[in-house]
Design a protein around this nucleic acid. Structure first.
Length: 293
DNA sequence: GGTCAGGTTCCGA
DNA sequence: TCGGAACCTGAC
């Protein structure tokens, strides 16, 4: 147990000054499902293959295990121009303003694309606790193990490992019907039939189409991957929570009835602009936590 | 023990 | 094109 008997300590860590950032809220905002608390105010997890420890002892200070500073800044979105992003939001939007005030420290993560894609394929029609359970199980069964300060950690297995594992073994991780989608998608990526690295050469619409060719990937999951993995901040995933808050807070019942999912998607992208995905994250977190009481 | 969940696919109009 | 049903599993 690292730092036993003390708070937020780690043998070798670096201090990074941060502003408008909340580590706990960000790791709990439904973008990622594998970070574990170390019992001393810190978090452990993997950035890709690399085991990392993170802690935020006070609002302006982030501690990162030595050697992972740059990776953590990128992963946590600390290099994103937050105030410039906020300036692109529609003026006079009281709902969005309230959502931003509710959790001003939220950031959009930049996760490894495969890990993000595979995790969201397993998320369909699942509650967060279950997504987390499945994610950790897949890691521990098929991922590379690391021993890190006395903790056992597992990196997310690559597409080859999951393709080799096959549908039946994946099903044993509690995936249900999603096992088929994950196995097929892992096979498509492992064989090179789909090139995730090539996504960065495509514009948002084409990248989304390419992702949606994969089995088990519809518009919502494709948008999650673009936003949380590819740094496409205009992507706007609409799940049941977003559907609820958009319809109840922005549209009259009559307007809402006239809008199907596709129309709502277009409306939201137009309303919230080039950083719509950031607006989405504030609204989503707010809808799930503040409005769900 | 029943209900329902952070979606996608498939099928019939 | 569009709406509705089916799909595995586990948390509540």
């Amino acid at each position: 147990m690292p730092g036993a008997g003390s708070k937020a300590l780690f043998p070798k860590s670096s201090t990074i000054q941060v502003e408008s950032f909340d580590l706990r809220e960000t790791l709990h905002s439904g973008q990622v499902f594998h970070w574990q608390e170390d019992g001393n105010g810190g978090w452990i997890g993997c950035l890709g293959e690399q085991p990392v420890w993170l802690a935020q002892p006070d609002a302006g200070t982030l501690l990162v295990s030595a050697g992972s500073e740059d990776a953590a800044v990128c992963y946590l979105g600390l290099d994103q121009p937050l105030s410039a992003i906020h300036e692109t939001f529609p003026e006079g939007d009281a709902v969005l303003a309230e959502a931003m005030a509710y959790s001003p420290g939220l950031r959009i993560l930049r996760q490894p694309v495969w890990e993000c894609l595979a995790t969201f394929i397993t998320s369909s029609l699942k509650q967060v606790a279950h997504i987390r359970r499945i994610s950790l199980l897949i890691r521990s069964r098929f991922g590379v193990e690391h021993t890190f300060q006395g903790n056992r950690l597992f990196a997310y297995p690559g597409p080859e490992a999951l393709a080799d594992a096959g549908e039946a073994a994946l099903r044993q991780c509690g995936l249900g019907y999603r096992a088929k989608s994950l196995a097929l998608t892992a096979g498509a990526v492992a064989s090179g039939r789909v090139d995730l690295n090539g996504l960065e050469n495509l514009d948002d619409a084409l990248a989304r189409e390419a992702l949606m060719e994969l089995h088990g990937v519809g518009e919502k999951i494709a948008n999650c991957v673009l936003l949380f993995g590819c740094g496409r901040y205009g992507a706007f995933p609409i799940d049941v929570w977003m559907d609820r808050i958009l319809r109840s807070k922005y549209l009259s019942p009559a307007q809402s009835r006239k809008m199907n999912a596709r129309a709502l998607q277009a409306w939201a992208e137009a309303r919230f602009g080039p950083y719509a995905g950031y607006a989405q994250q504030y609204l989503f977190h707010y809808a799930r936590n503040a409005l769900n009481k």
